[in-house]
Design a protein around this nucleic acid. Structure first.
Lengths: 186, 186
DNA sequence: TTGCTCCTCACGTCACGTGAGGTGGC
DNA sequence: TTGCTCCTCACGTCACGTGAGGTGGC
């Protein structure tokens, strides 16, 4: 079985122009041409394109994908991990943008509209479930102890400003120390 | 007081080329030129540029910013709210990319490296704090009742697949119904 | 003279989308 | 003939960054 450019693109869920663009940068190449100069893609070409699409779903650059497919020596794992870290950074920036917009709007109704969890809403939620202040402080301390980076991440998720995050985390670490010394004393 | 292009750019924390680019698209205009053809920016120009920078921190397009500054009739609030919604969509896409990478890596160690909170890590954290299964289910039910959109958001934050999120939320709603009828019966 | 800033084009970026202008098979 | 796909350029996108080539004041 062979495919024309349009057929293959459709099967893999991308546009014909995207496929031609991949050819222009040397990422895809049709197995051959038919007599009327139409590109003819083979089954092997289709498999390569599907692999490309899988990588694209991770938001990898076409340059990186080219490297992973054409040079078996490249360390795919480290490329993926770098991309993962970059994604975290991008998400952090977008959250900063959200925070900035919210401060421009200064409108509590905007929170609901955006589907963003605010600190106050979060605390109210826990309180409604019957969690006491002591429960919450224990929870912060445990979070900080077992997964400090994720604790930071979570506080950012709640759109809490940098300075307040720092003081919350410092306070959490102190709680933990108190807890430990009390246990030792008791 | 007046500024040259370089001086004004530095004061506002952007590059000279960025400032010149703003001029090329009609967003900024120097108050005048000095005898040697250098741009001369006034205090008013500086205020406008600072306003531009404030909007830029929200990730608004220069086109939108131009509209907000030059046409007082434009509804700034709705532009900001649209941007807020778009940011949520972008973040969702980036999270999809992360999920895709994680499935490629299939490596639990990658979670820690990336600073991502996984479902399992989250549950373990709560359990370490002494929260029981009953506490957690009550919490899900309450979350779903009081803020369904934010509940969805939070589950996405934990990088849980779409299908599982749906079933968790459906289950949460059922819990709530049971709770209510039990109270009515008791 | 060396270093600094300033000026004006013009081209590159990334992953395509969108014509323009033309061909080929049903 | 109408509609469809295919072909090959070439230009546009967004917010700049990076030279190239030249000027002006200390």
């Amino acid at each position: 079985v062979t495919y024309t450019a349009g057929q293959l693109a459709k099967r893999c869920g991308l546009s014909r122009t995207a496929l031609l663009y991949y050819e222009s940068i040397g990422l895809m190449k049709a197995a051959g041409r038919s007599s009327n100069n139409y590109r003819r893609y083979s089954e092997k070409d289709r498999q390569r394109l599907e692999q490309i699409c899988r990588y694209r779903e991770s938001g990898l650059s076409l340059e990186d994908i080219k490297g992973m497919l054409d040079r078996p020596s490249t360390d795919g794992r480290s490329i993926l991990e770098r991309r993962l870290a970059a994604l975290n950074e991008e998400i952090r920036k977008l959250r900063d943008h959200q925070r900035s917009i919210l401060s421009l709007l200064r409108n509590p109704a905007a929170f609901r509209k955006a589907g963003i969890m605010s600190k106050d809403a979060w605390v109210a939620l826990l309180r409604n479930c019957g969690f006491s202040d002591a429960d919450m402080s224990r929870w912060h301390a445990e979070f900080e102890r077992s997964a400090p980076a994720e604790h930071q991440h979570f506080l950012e998720y709640l759109c809490i400003p940098e300075g307040e995050i720092r003081s919350i985390r410092a306070w959490s670490r102190k709680q933990l120390a108190n807890d430990t010394s009390e246990r030792a004393a008791g």
